[in-house]
Write a protein that binds this DNA or RNA. Sequence first.
DNA 1: ACTAAACACGACTAAATCAGTGGGGATTCT
DNA 2: AGAATCCCCACTGATTTAGTCGTGTTTAGT
Lengths: 160, 160
Amino acid sequence: MRISAKSEYGVRAMVRLARQFGDGPIPLSQVAAREKISLDFLEQLMLLLRRQGLVHSARGIHGGYLLALPPSTISVGDVMRAVEGPMVNMPCLDRGEGDDPCCTMGIHVAGCATRDVWALLQEKITQTLDGVTLADLCQGQPLLPLHQPALLRELSLLAQ
Amino acid sequence: MRISAKSEYGVRAMVRLARQFGDGPIPLSQVAAREKISLDFLEQLMLLLRRQGLVHSARGIHGGYLLALPPSTISVGDVMRAVEGPMVNMPCLDRGEGDDPCCTMGIHVAGCATRDVWALLQEKITQTLDGVTLADLCQGQPLLPLHQPALLRELSLLAQ
DNA sequence: ACTAAACACGACTAAATCAGTGGGGATTCT
DNA sequence: AGAATCCCCACTGATTTAGTCGTGTTTAGT
Ligand code: SF4
Ligand code: SF4
């Protein structure tokens, strides 16, 4: 369950673009230098993000990349899906109950008890990552009150 | 973010042991055959689980492995931590704010905005995986009512 | 027109990780 | 003794990761 460099760099770069939202295209060379990311590698990531419609690009001497949407409407989950595909990579999750056997069990996926855990995990991860936007990361204040049970935190959010 | 074979096999094997909790030691050869896992690979995993105190082993001709605790007290998170270390592998999460720089930023980790996302993600994943026990996976009924928002589900659990 | 700065895109690669194998022990039951 | 089982570690082939490189295209300024 490690977080790949693609995801980390992708999010870092997008946060950088979010901070300068409205300033026109930002050249990747600047982002790469400030975030200490390989320019060539970063270009590949931005290409994926552009194809997903999360950023726009401008070519030529004053070109660069810029967010296609306001920072508050782009989630970390959107970025990660764009740069590295499905958030949780467990093949059996992508198939319906009636599909072919896909795993080492060789059996119908409906017969697997542990599959439910991975489905639950995928749901929670997706919820979490889709619940944080680039705008959230631009502000200085902490993202979460740590050491507080999730239920309490969610209830307090509900009470607002 | 893929789930490694270590984790999947580890959980599958532990569920198998949980189903036969109380029957004495189960030989790995049986578990491997029924779960279609390489015996040699599985042995490595069980060794790790034993060192974490999650299972006991018995050698000799009627030996095998058995859970060291009741299935309802062992969580999926416990199993995964035993077989593959920290649940979310992002080095900067394991260091305090005052530690050395550890990442490509080369800067103090406190200065990184995106780190908060990974911390939040780690917290959520840990909560989720620690909230499911082997006993939960042994029962036939579904683990989660899918397509239902998490908050509602948690509230309904609270109401019980 | 020319040039420099930027994106576009695919091919290639060194290193790391993963998943599994193999081989030798040690222990216990019959 | 002998068979089944756990114990432990070294090794390997395949895959993935995290880049690098090369070449081309577009645009702005001169
Ligand atoms: S064994 Fe179960 S969890 Fe693993 S791939 Fe097959 S259906 Fe999915
Ligand atoms: S850049 Fe931020 S998120 Fe990445 S390793 Fe460093 S502190 Fe952690």
